[in-house]
Design a binder for these strands. Structure first.
Length: 333
DNA sequence: CGTCCTACCTGGAGGC
DNA sequence: TGCCTCCAGGTAGGAC
C-alpha cells in the first residue's frame, strides 16, 4: 500500500522521467480515475493536452505535477495505484486508467490502479493562508471548477521541485493544490512543526493510532507505518492521546520519522529505472517489518508473539509485552 | 466542532 | 473443481 515512502519514490521517478516534457494527449480509460475532477473525463483530457510539466511535489500521500497557469496534475495512488513510465508501444494492461503521451514521442506515463481508489485531477495551486501557525483546517476549500482555473492576474509562481529550497528569512510561499488544503504537513517536510503537532495531538480525545492515520493532523502515515512506528516507540495503538506525555510524543515522532526515512531509503533504490514501479511491494516489506503482518511470530525485541487486533475495520499489529494495552505501566515505570 | 463510522473497489486466499 | 465469503485499507462525507 503506498504510504509516504512509496509516494515519494514515485514522485522522484516522475521528476526524473516526465518533468520538463510536454503532454501531447491524455486518455481516460476509466472515468472513475478522474471522478473528483469537475470537468469530467473529456474535460480532463482536453485540459491536459499540451501541458508542460514543470515540477513534481508531494505532501503526505498526495503528489502533484505543476502544469502551468498556476495549475497542477494532482494524484493520489489510493490502495493500488502506480505511475508507470515506459515504451509507448508496450501492451496496455487492463488496469491502466489514464494514459499520457508526450510531444517528444518518448516514454509514456500510465496511471494504473487495480482497485480504483486512487484518482487524478487538474487543480489550482495556491499559497496556504497564513504562512505559519494557522491550522490547515481553517482554510476554506473552494471548488476546483473550470471557472476558477483562469490564469492568475499577477505573476504566476511556478512550484518546481528542482528549484533549490530557500532558507532565507523571507522564504517564498509554497504553493499547494487547493483540494488538499486540509492535509497537514508530513513529518519529512520542511514546514513540519513538531511542537505544534505534539500540542494538537495531546488535545485530541482519541486513540493514538487513529490520530496517526488522520491526515489532517499529520500526513503520510498509513496502517503499515503506523504499526511500525508504534512498535518502535513501544506504545499501544489505542493509548488515549490525552494521556501521552510530551516525551512520549517526541519518542513517537522520532519513531515515525525513522521508519519513514528508512523505508524511503529502501524503496528509493530504483529511482532512475525507466520503469517507475512502486506500489509498496518493495524489499522493505520482506525484510524490515517488525509488527505489521507478523501475527503469531515472535517480537524481535522480546520474543512474545505479535498480536493482531481488529481496528477500524482493518488490522492492528503489536507486541503485547512491549506495547502494553493498559495504563498501569505508568505506575510501575 | 470533534469524533466516529461506512461506502467505495477488486482480486487473492481459504473454506467447503 | 467451483463457488462462496472474507480480507486488504485511504479517503470523503455523513452521522451523532
Amino acid at each position: 500500500m503506498p504510504e509516504l515512502p512509496e509516494v515519494e519514490t514515485v514522485r522522484a521517478g516522475l521528476a526524473a522521467h516526465v518533468v520538463g516534457r510536454t503532454i501531447e494527449t491524455a486518455r481516460v480509460l476509466h472515468p472513475r480515475a478522474v471522478r473528483r475532477d469537475p470537468a469530467g473525463p473529456a474535460g480532463f483530457e482536453a485540459a491536459m493536452a499540451g501541458r508542460l510539466l514543470e515540477g513534481a511535489e508531494r505532501r503526505g500521500k498526495y503528489m502533484w505535477l505543476a502544469a502551468g497557469n498556476g495549475e497542477a496534475l494532482l494524484a493520489h495512488l489510493g490502495m493500488s495505484g502506480q505511475m508507470l513510465v515506459g515504451d509507448p508501444d508496450r501492451s496496455l494492461s487492463p488496469h491502466v486508467r489514464v494514459r499520457f503521451t508526450f510531444a517528444d514521442g518518448g516514454p509514456d506515463l500510465r496511471f494504473t490502479d487495480q482497485r480504483t481508489f486512487g484518482h487524478l485531477m487538474l487543480v489550482q495551486l495556491r499559497a496556504p493562508e497564513g504562512a505559519s501557525g494557522v491550522s490547515p483546517l481553517s482554510t476554506p476549500r473552494p471548488r476546483g471548477t473550470r471557472a476558477n482555473r483562469e490564469p492568475l492576474g499577477g505573476p504566476v509562481i511556478v512550484a518546481d521541485a528542482r528549484t533549490p529550497v530557500e532558507v532565507a528569512s523571507d522564504p517564498a510561499p509554497r504553493l499547494l493544490p487547493v483540494p488538499i488544503a486540509h492535509i497537514a504537513p508530513d513529518p519529512l517536510e520542511r514546514d513540519f512543526d513538531a511542537a505544534q503537532f505534539s500540542a494538537r495531538l495531546r488535545r485530541r480525545h482519541t486513540g493514538i493510532k487513529r490520530a496517526l492515520l488522520d491526515q489532517s493532523l499529520i500526513s503520510g502515515i498509513g496502517n503499515i507505518y503506523a504499526d511500525e512506528a508504534l512498535w518502535r516507540a513501544r506504545l499501544h495503538w489505542d493509548q488515549p492521546t490525552d494521556t501521552l506525555e510530551a516525551a512520549e510524543v517526541s519518542r513517537l515522532l522520532a519513531a515515525v520519522t525513522g521508519v519513514l526515512t528508512e523505508a524511503l531509503m529502501v524503496g528509493g533504490t530504483s529511482f532512475d529505472s525507466l520503469y517507475v514501479n512502486v506500489n509498496g511491494q518493495s524489499g522493505y516489506f520482506e525484510r524490515s517489518l517488525e509488527a505489521y503482518g507478523r501475527a503469531g511470530q515472535p517480537c524481535s525485541r522480546c520474543g512474545t508473539p505479535i498480536r493482531r487486533d481488529s481496528f477500524m475495520n482493518r488490522s492492528s499489529y503489536s507486541c503485547p509485552s512491549c506495547q502494553p494495552a493498559n495504563l498501569s505501566r505508568r505506575v510501575f515505570e
